[in-house]
Design a protein around this nucleic acid. Structure first.
Lengths: 335, 335
DNA sequence: TTGAAAGCGATACCAG
DNA sequence: CTGGTATCGCTTTCAA
C-alpha cells in the first residue's frame, strides 16, 4: 500500500479511501491510485484492515459437519453457503467423522481465526468446552443434534416422530418382525430414532424383537453384513427400518444380494439422491436439508447481527415419502 | 493479550512465548500466564499474529468447485480436506454453479484473504484474469478442467479416452443407434467427452446419428425430458452414453418411466453412490475422486512450499466399471 | 479534498 | 529467562 501511495504520489490514507470506495477523493486522484494498484498488483490485506476497523467482521463462518462427502452434510453446507453468499460471507468447512477431539480442536481454531459464527453438527457427547469459546462472542448454531452443556440455538428434525411414523407405516401393513439398523448410540439423533422405533411398537401394545435391533453401525458395509445375518435367521425380519442414509444403502445391498428386494419391506431415515430410482424405489423419511440449512443460516446471521435473545430450538417435521420399498406387505404365512 | 500480561504480571513478549509454546520460559511464569489466559478467555488473534510473522501463512486454502452438493465436487473437497488437515490447514469452499463472474469475484476475495493456495474447477472459459491474481504469489491448481490463458498446474481425467471406451463398449455389443446426453458445450470436459464419443464411431468407420447427440443439458430434469423425446422417435436409440452423473440419473429416470431399463443399454460418465444398487446396476466410467483430490493437494502444497518448477498437468485414466446396464445387447431385429 | 500521527494485536530483534 | 521497542498493513482521528 505504501508503494501504491508512492507511485500515485499521494498519502496512505488516500489510497485507503480509494480502495474502500470512500467518498471525498477527486476523480483525478482516484484514477491515479487505481492505475498504481493495477501496475503493482496490489491487493488489500483483509486481515490487516480488520485489525484496526471498529466492529470488524471477518466475513467468515465455520461449518463443522459429520462428513462433507455425505449427501446430508453436503446439502446442508450448500444451503448455508447460499445464505452466506448473500451476506458476502465465506464458509470454512470441515468434517468431524464423529471424532470429538477433532471437533474441539477445530472449534478452537475457528474461534482463533475470529470467524463471525459457527455451525456445528457435534461429534462430542457434551460441549461444555464451548462455554468458554462462546464467551469470546462468537455465536454458534447447532444442527441435526442438540447442544449439551452449553446454551445455543439449534435446528433439527423431529427424529422420534419421524422414525415412529416409519415404523407405524410398517406395522400398519401387518409387519411384526421389523428389524432396525441404527447408528452409533452416543449420537443423540440415533438414540431418538431408536426411541421412535420402539414407541411405535409400544403404542400398539407390541414389543420389537431385541435381536432384530442392531445399533452402533458405522458404515454401509457393516449394515450389509448385519442385514445378511438377520436374513439368515430362522425367523428373519419381514421389514426393516434403517436409521441413516448410508445404512439404508447397506440394507438394500444385502437384500439385493439375496434377491429379496421385493420380499422384504424397507423404510430408511433420510432421503438421498437416486433413492427413487432404486427397484423398488426406496420409501424414506425425508428431512428437508434445504430448509434446515436455510433456518440454520437465518439463526446464525441474526446472532451475528447482534440478537441476544434466549436460544431458540427449531424442530422441523420430517415427512414420509412412500415410493414402494416400504409398501411391501408381509408374506401371508408369517403370523 | 495486554490484559493477560497485566494479570500475570509479565510482559507482552512473555505471553506471546507461552501462547506459542516457545522455549525459554520458566514453568512458574508459564503457569501464571496460562491461568490468566483461562481467566480472561483470551484467544490469540491469528490475523494479527500473521501480520508481523515472517513468511507467515494463513493456513487457509480456497476451493472453488462446481457445486458442493454434487457428489463429485463433495468427494473432491473431502479428499482435499484430508490432505489439508495433515498440514493444519483449513479449507474455504464455495460453489460456482458454472457462473464465470462468481468465479472471478471469489478468486479475488480469496486472494485478498491471503489464502495460501487455490483449487479451481473453473466455470469460466478463459482465466486470463488469474495472471494478475497469481502474480501476488498465490499458487493455484486446476481440477477437472484445464487452465486457459494462464499457466498453472492441473489434474484431470482423460475424458476423451474415457468416453471413447464407454462408446466402444456399446459398439462392441452391436449397438449402432447410440445416443449421447452431454453437459454445457462451453465446459471443456463436456467437449472432450463428446469428442471421445465421436472418435469411437469414427475408428470403426461409423458415424453417430446427429439427432441422437444432445449437448447443453444442465440438469437431471432436462436429461429426463430429452431422453423421453429420443425414446419416442420412430427409430429410437438402443443404447445411451451420458456425459455426467446428474445426466445419468435423468436418463435412468426416463427409461424407468417407460419400463425400458432392461431394454436400452446405458453407460454413464462419472460414478456416484448407489449406482451399483440400481436395477440393472449402472455401468460407468469411474473417475477416482479420492486420487484426483489427493493429487491436487500434493501439487498445491508443493507449490505452497515454494516449488517453482514449470506447471505440471496430471492426467488420470478413468476406468470402465461394467455392472449390467452397459451390457444390455441391442434387440435382434435392429439392423 | 488531503495528510500526519496514533493505534489495532501480535511478533522480531536485541538488550538486559 | 525476561522485557523494551520497532514494525506488520491498514484504519481512525483530527488537523490542514
Amino acid at each position: 500500500m505504501r508503494d501504491v501511495a508512492a507511485l500515485a504520489g499521494v498519502s496512505l490514507k488516500t489510497v485507503s479511501r480509494v480502495v474502500n470506495g470512500e467518498p471525498g477523493v477527486s476523480p483525478d486522484v482516484r484514477d491515479r491510485v487505481r492505475a498504481a494498484v493495477g501496475r503493482l498488483d496490489y491487493r488489500p490485506n483483509l486481515a490487516a484492515s480488520n485489525l484496526r476497523r471498529t466492529g470488524a467482521r471477518t466475513g467468515l463462518v465455520g461449518a463443522l459437519v459429520q462428513d462433507l462427502s455425505n449427501s446430508f452434510s453436503a446439502g446442508l453446507l450448500r444451503a448455508l453457503e447460499d445464505a452466506a453468499r448473500r451476506r458476502s460471507t465465506a464458509v470454512l468447512a470441515a468434517s468431524l467423522d464423529e471424532e470429538a477431539e477433532r471437533e474441539e480442536a477445530l472449534v478452537h481454531d475457528l474461534v482463533t481465526r475470529r470467524v463471525d459464527g459457527l455451525v456445528l453438527m457435534p461429534a462430542s457427547e457434551r460441549q461444555d468446552y464451548l462455554v468458554a469459546e462462546l464467551r469470546t462472542g462468537t455465536p454458534a448454531v447447532f444442527v441435526d443434534r442438540p447442544p449439551r452443556g452449553v446454551d445455543a440455538d439449534s435446528v433439527r428434525v423431529d427424529n422420534v416422530e419421524g422414525s415412529r411414523a416409519a415404523t407405524e407405516h410398517l406395522l400398519d401393513l401387518g409387519h411384526r418382525r421389523v428389524a432396525a439398523l441404527l447408528d452409533i448410540e452416543t449420537i443423540p439423533t440415533a438414540e431418538e430414532r431408536r426411541a421412535g422405533f420402539t414407541a411405535a411398537f409400544t403404542a400398539r401394545g407390541l414389543r420389537p424383537d431385541p435381536r432384530l435391533v442392531v445399533p452402533n453401525l458405522r458404515s454401509t458395509d457393516e449394515a450389509t453384513e448385519v442385514m445378511h445375518a438377520l436374513l439368515a435367521l430362522d425367523d428373519p425380519p419381514t421389514a426393516v427400518f434403517t436409521g441413516r442414509n448410508i445404512l439404508s444403502a447397506g440394507a438394500v445391498r444385502a437384500l439385493a444380494e439375496r434377491g429379496l428386494r421385493r420380499e422384504v419391506a424397507l423404510v430408511g431415515f433420510d432421503d438421498f439422491p437416486l433413492a427413487d430410482l432404486l427397484d423398488p424405489p426406496l420409501t424414506v423419511i425425508r428431512q428437508d436439508v434445504q430448509r434446515i440449512g436455510a433456518t440454520v443460516a437465518d439463526l446464525l446471521f441474526e446472532r451475528i447481527d447482534g440478537d441476544t435473545s434466549p436460544p431458540r430450538h427449531v424442530v422441523i417435521e420430517p415427512t414420509l415419502v412412500a415410493r414402494g420399498s416400504g409398501e411391501i406387505p408381509p408374506p401371508p404365512r408369517t403370523r
